[in-house]
Nucleic acid binder design. Structure first.
Length: 448
RNA sequence: GCGACUGUAGCUCAGUUGGUUAGAGCGCCGGAUUGUGGCUCCGGAGGUCGUGGGUUCGAACCCCAUCAGUCGCCCCA
């Protein structure tokens, strides 16, 4: 006997190694989807009301879209992108966010010829090669909306308002604090960045490693660094307010004025600098009141310069994005219960093959009329089938045995009371619809 | 990318100073007189002790590596 043929090895061959999900990737199970559905509906509802139309961009983009759009010194581009290469050697990336993709699409599809501004919303998966943690996955969903092709503080405010409305609809608005700031126009920012660089040049040794790197490409973010030495140096750096031009100041004042008018509370945060380069003027984030900047659930702002960076005409725009998983974890913490749309109304229990044949037809007829019905799922005994009916928490169980089939009748059992009635089999669909109630039927018509 | 902690059935966890066939609760499947759920009782299935090496007469337990998760940093949704 050779070693390969021992019983032990045969067993090993049969038992395949378990395969697990890729790091940072999570299954969305039915129970999770109930929450996703709630969020998606809230988003769609509010976006449609405000005249937004849905867009989806491909998961794969050319790497340039984000290197140029987000900025190649940002953490997202430097170390958080899922990069891959096409067979012909093209540098591709799984989109880490949607704004740059949507702007690419806007330019490519000639949306500048649509009525301006173009209002778009999205609910899409995104990918970041980051270290997984709670509320931080390598594949995660974001919803967001963009108003492309107009510069008007009322737009910035409406974007914020829409965000607040969705959070209110979901019942979690009071868990967050809106942080706002202005980072000026691209021109002002550039001048300020140069002044900052001049300030920090020669004092690099006092900066942390990250900031030394930032100094070259994105000095603005040194101000946001949490390192103590960096903060000390930053505190004596040129003040942004001295560089901010009157137009941006007025713009920012108007944003605040309009927010006040709408009764939207906010916290002015001079240190708020978003991690994506394309922002200008208004920036904002929604922070967890308990955790602060940690795991912000959403953020956005104005990005007037993005279109040009991506090779389009000057196209001032503003938008916002939210993390679905983070929103959902707040829904769960807040005890928000999603409605049970998967509720089963009727279970069909059958005995014998003839009854089973009838049951399959009855199930199809009930489904057609909008009744959520289950049955004929491999259980044979009446006990097992009723137990299953109970597991699904149905209101009614149809009992169809050999006797009933022969006599062309069926038994209808009220599961809560345990009472049973007998009816002619021919009336079964109407009878069930009557008991379930027209209002509870699940009917979908295209075009309605 | 850095640091710390964790990893035993589908889930939540026991598992004594390393010592024979690894346990519980819940869940799942089935039974408790002939075709009837929930409660109760009884029974059953299900575990390469994350994975791979090493130390040892002997490892779920000790060591190393690796994978995954959680927390913190960084950053963001």
């Amino acid at each position: 006997m050779t070693e390969e043929n021992t019983p032990e090895n045969e067993q090993n061959e049969q038992q395949q190694a378990k395969i697990q999900a890729v790091r940072g990737m999570k299954d969305i199970l039915p129970a999770d989807h109930e929450y996703f559905t709630v969020v998606k509906k809230a988003v769609r509802h509010r976006c449609r009301q405000a005249g937004f139309r849905r867009i989806s961009t491909p998961i794969l983009e050319n790497r340039e879209v984000f290197e140029r759009g987000i900025g190649d010194a940002t953490d997202i581009v430097e170390k958080e992108m899922f990069c891959l290469e096409s067979r012909s050697g093209k540098k591709l990336v799984m989109k880490p966010e949607s704004t740059a993709s949507i702007m690419r699409s806007y330019i490519e599809n000639g949306m500048s010829s649509w009525s301006q501004p173009v209002k778009l919303y999205y609910i899409e998966p995104h990918f970041r090669y980051d270290r997984p943690q709670k509320g931080r996955y390598r594949q995660f969903w974001q919803f967001g909306f963009e108003v492309i092709g107009a510069r008007d503080y009322s737009i910035d405010v409406q974007v914020i308002l829409l965000s607040v409305k969705i959070l209110e609809d979901l019942g979690i608005a009071d868990r967050f604090e809106l942080q706002i700031n202005t980072i000026g126009t691209p021109e002002v920012r550039k001048a300020y960045e140069e002044a900052l660089q001049n300030h920090f040049f020669g004092r690099e040794r006092n900066l942390c490693e990250d900031c030394k790197r930032r100094l070259e490409k994105n000095p603005l973010r040194i101000l946001d660094c949490k390192n103590e030495d960096c903060q000390i140096l930053a505190s004596v750096a040129p003040k942004f307010d001295d560089f901010l031009d009157q137009d941006s100041k007025d713009y920012y004042e108007k944003v605040k004025e309009f927010l006040d008018e709408l009764g939207i509370k906010y916290n002015e945060n001079k240190k708020l600098v978003r991690g994506l380069d394309y922002y200008s003027d208004t920036v904002f984030e929604f922070w967890d009141k308990n955790e602060g900047a940690q795991n912000a659930i959403g953020g956005g702002g104005r990005y007037d310069g993005l279109a040009e960076i991506l090779g389009g005409q000057p196209t001032p725009s503003a938008g916002v994005a939210f993390g679905m998983e983070r929103v959902i974890s707040h829904l769960k913490e807040a005890g928000v219960q999603p409605p049970d749309k998967d509720k089963i109304h009727v279970y069909v229990a059958c005995l014998g093959d003839l009854a089973k044949k009838k049951a399959v037809k009855i199930l199809a007829d009930l489904n057609d009329r909008g009744v959520h019905a289950l049955g004929a799922m491999g259980k044979t005994s009446m006990k097992a089938q009723l137990r299953m009916a109970d597991k699904f928490n149905v209101d009614w169980t149809i009992i169809l045995g050999e006797v009933e089939v022969r006599e062309n009748i069926f038994i209808l059992r009220n599961m809560e009371r345990g009472a049973q009635e007998t009816f002619p089999l021919d009336d079964i669909v109407d009878k069930i619809v009557e008991r379930v109630g027209e209002d509870n039927l699940d009917i979908y018509n295209i075009g309605e």
